[in-house]
Simulated assay, not measured.
Amino acid sequence: MIVDEKLIEGKRLTWILRCPTKGDSEELSALRIKIDGETENLDREAGEGLLTSEDFKKLIYEDSISEKNLFLVAEVEGKLVGFARLQGNGLSRYRHKAEFGICILKEYWGYGIGKVLLDNILGYADNVGIKKVCLYVVETNTKAIELYKSFGFVQEGLLINDRIHMDGNYYNSVVMGRIID
């Protein structure tokens, strides 16, 4: 689905919230690699699960025609600094449900970009009849967990020793969900 562009005047930063276009695909591919290398909060290390420019073009197109998917980007002064993606489930038994993720460059943490992305993702999900939105978050990412809780997410489970970070230690993943009746 495609939504209208919005100018966001937030915490000490003005930025644009919009859906990506094909022209963003190369920048998105590079951005994803950079963000993956800046934090251990995401699933991948830099360069793993690589999505090329062509892969992003395909995602952008598929999401633009899907009623259950939404891809949003955050743009500051003509530069993409983050993105979020909601992906609905095409299986009949799970058609009421979607998963999402958010990625933001570390230098833009603390400006409220994640909160705006999340608010828009959930507003969209509610409008298209998605009853449950799910996510996985590393247990040590307490800021993200608190943000999700403030939007009505609850912890549904804990995956013990679910991931290994570069320090060689195992970390738990929190399974969270938000249900709309």
Rank of each mutant, 00 (worst) to 15 (best):
S66V: 00
N89Y: 13
R93T: 06
L70M: 05
V174W: 10
Y111S: 03
G90P: 14
K115C: 05
Y124T: 12
G82Q: 08
V154Y: 13
D63K: 00
K143C: 04
G177D: 06
G168L: 11
M176I: 01
K131I: 03
G110K: 09
L59E: 10
E67F: 00
L105W: 01
I60A: 02
L51C: 04
G152Y: 07
S92Q: 10
Y148G: 04
I160Q: 12
Q155H: 08
D119H: 14
F56M: 01
E156Q: 13
N120S: 14
G157H: 14
K58R: 05
G78K: 09
L105M: 11
G78M: 09
G88R: 07
L117N: 04
E99G: 03
L159K: 10
D119A: 15
V128E: 13
K97L: 13
I164Q: 12
L122M: 06
I179K: 02
Q87D: 11
V76H: 12
C103Y: 15
I60S: 06
E75P: 05
L122A: 09
K97Y: 07
K131E: 14
S150R: 07
M166P: 04
N127G: 11
G90Q: 12
S64T: 00
K131W: 08
I121V: 14
D63F: 00
S92E: 15
Y61R: 00
G82C: 07
N120M: 06
I180A: 05
K149E: 14
I113S: 04
G110F: 14
Y111M: 05
I104D: 12
V73L: 08
R178V: 00
L158N: 10
V133L: 07
E99T: 09
G168H: 05
N69I: 00
E107V: 09
K58L: 04
G123R: 12
K132Y: 08
F56C: 01
L86Y: 11
V175N: 09
K97F: 06
K106W: 10
E75V: 09
Q155T: 15
E107G: 04
N120W: 06
S66Q: 03
D167I: 00
G157P: 15
K115P: 01
A125H: 10
G168C: 12
Q87V: 13
L72P: 03
L135K: 03
L51P: 01
L118S: 05
L147V: 11
D167Y: 02
L59T: 00
H165I: 03
D126T: 04
E77W: 04
R163P: 02
S173F: 02
L91C: 03
